[in-house]
């Protein structure tokens, strides 16, 4: 049987592609995640003292940071973002709590949503809700493989003020009442509308448009804006005791993705800068106490090889197209 000319010309490319696919298959079988941003691993070591929620706590010097590239969200309406190129992340754990510190450059501090045209700076971490075999779709998960999202918002940290608090000269003759029934969204149980909800929301999602509050709110966080950068710390018990939320294990590895919103560009919802999944690995014991285990080196090698494969494939495709 004669092969069509086009297929013949592209044989080298196809072979390389087959090799790459096989490598990816092996990665999948060995439970390594091909969706993860392949060379990035955030290591969480035990902290020597309680990191607390202060992003400037000295204990953070014990942790090495990784820089995670961000791109525009292109998967679903409304697409957008991409204005923030990188987020750097560190992680520590202590006394059964996981701490993640993120930092990114943003020229404007947008922490008020008092006006209709104001949107807030924000950052979110996304984890697979359970250690399921299927990796959830990076954007908002999928049915049967949900995600657990921790979102910190600058405006929520400042608090939900009534306009009269911000405009001291505002004069209203009389408000008939200020019970929750006069704040419809609060009366409807919308956690996002609560006056004392705190700056971090623990959310779960299984698809676009389906994000909602987690059954229990155990994530805490705090951010500071300094020298043109936001630094935010998230803290949560490794195991929140809630089956719908991500449980971390000492010596465990799981996926983690980041999203950043720039309020000054009216970014909200899907309009955000997003990362691919990276891996977060939690080491037991003291900070600096453990060397990189042999299996991790092996995985790194495998990942490197598959990266080489992808590179070859790209070159092959280019030459085939000529």
């Amino acid at each position: 049987m004669k092969m069509p000319a086009m297929v013949r010309r592209r044989m080298p490319t196809l072979l390389v592609l087959a090799l790459v696919l096989a490598t990816a298959g092996i990665l999948q079988l060995t439970n390594a995640n091909p969706a993860a941003s392949q060379s990035l691993m955030l290591i969480s070591r035990a902290a020597s003292s309680d990191p607390g929620l202060d992003p400037n706590a000295a204990v953070w010097n014990e942790s090495a940071s990784i820089d995670v590239p961000l791109t525009a969200q292109q998967q679903a309406y409304p697409i957008g973002g991409g204005s923030i190129a990188t987020i750097s992340a560190k992680s520590l754990h202590r006394d059964g709590n996981l701490y993640v510190r993120v930092e990114w450059t943003d020229a404007t501090q947008d922490d008020s949503t008092l006006k209709v045209e104001n949107f807030s700076d924000a950052v979110a971490l996304e984890f697979p809700a359970s250690a399921s075999a299927t990796v959830p779709s990076i954007c908002m998960g999928q049915v049967g493989a949900g995600v657990n999202i921790w979102q910190w918002r600058a405006d929520s940290q400042v608090g939900h003020g009534d306009p009269s608090e911000r405009y001291p000269n505002l004069w209203v003759e009389r408000y008939p009442g200020d019970g929750p029934e006069f704040y419809t969204a609060r009366a409807a149980g919308n956690p996002y509308a609560l006056a004392d909800g705190g700056p971090v929301q623990d959310l779960v999602a299984a698809s676009f448009g389906n994000i909602g509050p987690a059954g229990s709110q155990t994530v805490q966080g705090q951010g500071v804006y300094q020298a043109g950068k936001w630094a935010v710390v998230f803290a949560r018990p490794l195991n929140p005791g809630d089956a719908s939320l991500t449980a971390f294990h000492e010596t465990g590895t799981t996926d983690l993705a980041f999203a950043v919103w720039d309020g000054s560009l009216s970014e909200r919802n899907g309009q955000k800068s997003v990362s691919a999944f990276v891996r977060i690995h939690i080491f037991p014991g003291d900070a600096g106490g453990s060397a990189t285990p042999a299996w991790l080196i092996a995985l790194g090698l495998l990942v490197g090889l598959s990266g080489l494969g992808v590179g070859l494939a790209v070159i092959g495709t280019r030459s085939g197209a000529k």
Binding site: K115, V116, H160, T184, A185
Partner: peptide, 11 residues
């Protein structure tokens, strides 16, 4: 459709 700043929802 109008924005309400202290519940941060639209009404």
């Amino acid at each position: 459709s109008m924005y309400r700043p202290n519940t941060r929802t639209s009404e």
